[in-house]
Amino acid sequence: MKKLYRGSCHCGAVTFACQLDLAEGIRRCNCSFCAKTRMQKAFALREEFEITAGKDRLSAYRAENSNWREGDVDHYFCSRCGVRPFSRGYLEDFLGHFYAVNVACLDGVSDAELGAAPLIYENGRIDDYVNPPADTRFM
């Protein structure tokens, strides 16, 4: 069941609110971007996500010449502390418009709540977001 969560970057300049169902899983991906940033994400529909403060503090990154499964993803980070609280994307055969929320940036979530969420491993290195890679120990 979806629940309202609030979150922020490390310095608190960027804050957001979103509806998430952590029982749907927390995803870990081995694509080059997620692997280098150690992103663990849950997905919110675009209409269920709101930047509540600090929009002017956000900077964005999109890989040049990238066409992620015929969609697009912009990775946002706080220009003050450098933390990436979320990414915004579009993928027709996934959720349409969505936000990938960095679950480490959710405020007030207990370790037990995060620990109870199933982990879903994505093999982003080969654009297979349905099946896990053979080895997930490093993720």
Rank of each mutant, 00 (worst) to 15 (best):
A23M: 03
E47C: 06
E24H: 04
G54V: 07
T52E: 04
E47S: 11
C18L: 13
E48C: 04
G25Y: 07
G54K: 14
N30V: 03
Q40H: 02
K55M: 05
A35G: 06
A44K: 12
R28V: 12
C31I: 01
E24C: 03
F43V: 10
E50M: 08
R46K: 11
I26F: 06
F33D: 03
G54R: 11
F43H: 02
A23P: 04
R46G: 15
K36H: 03
N30C: 12
F33G: 01
E48F: 15
A53G: 14
K41A: 14
L45P: 13
E47Q: 10
E47M: 05
A23I: 07
E47H: 14
E50D: 06
E50V: 06
A42E: 13
M39W: 02
E24V: 00
A23S: 14
C31T: 02
A23V: 04
K41N: 15
C18G: 13
C29W: 02
I51A: 13
F49Y: 03
G54C: 12
F33P: 03
A42H: 07
Q19V: 00
D56C: 06
A53P: 11
Q40W: 02
I51N: 11
D56M: 04
R38V: 06
C31Y: 00
I51R: 14
D56V: 06
Q40N: 05
L22K: 04
C31Q: 00
K41E: 15
R46W: 14
N30S: 07
C18W: 10
F33T: 00
F49R: 10
C34S: 01
L20H: 01
Q19R: 10
A23Y: 04
A44S: 13
L20M: 12
K41I: 14
R46C: 11
F49Q: 11
D56N: 12
C29I: 02
R27N: 05
L22A: 08
C29L: 02
G25T: 13
D56E: 13
T52A: 10
R28I: 05
A42Q: 03
G54L: 12
Q19T: 03
L22Y: 07
K55H: 04
A44T: 11
C29N: 00
A44R: 11
C34T: 00
I26L: 12
A35P: 04
N30K: 04
S32P: 05
I26S: 08
G54M: 08
C18A: 15
R27I: 08
Q40T: 01
S32K: 01
K55W: 13
R28H: 07
D21H: 04
E50Y: 01
T37Q: 15
A53M: 09
L20S: 11
F49V: 01
D21W: 08
C29G: 07
R46F: 15
E47I: 10
N30T: 01
I51S: 08
Q40C: 06
Q19E: 09
F33R: 00
R38H: 07
R46H: 14
G25K: 14
N30L: 12
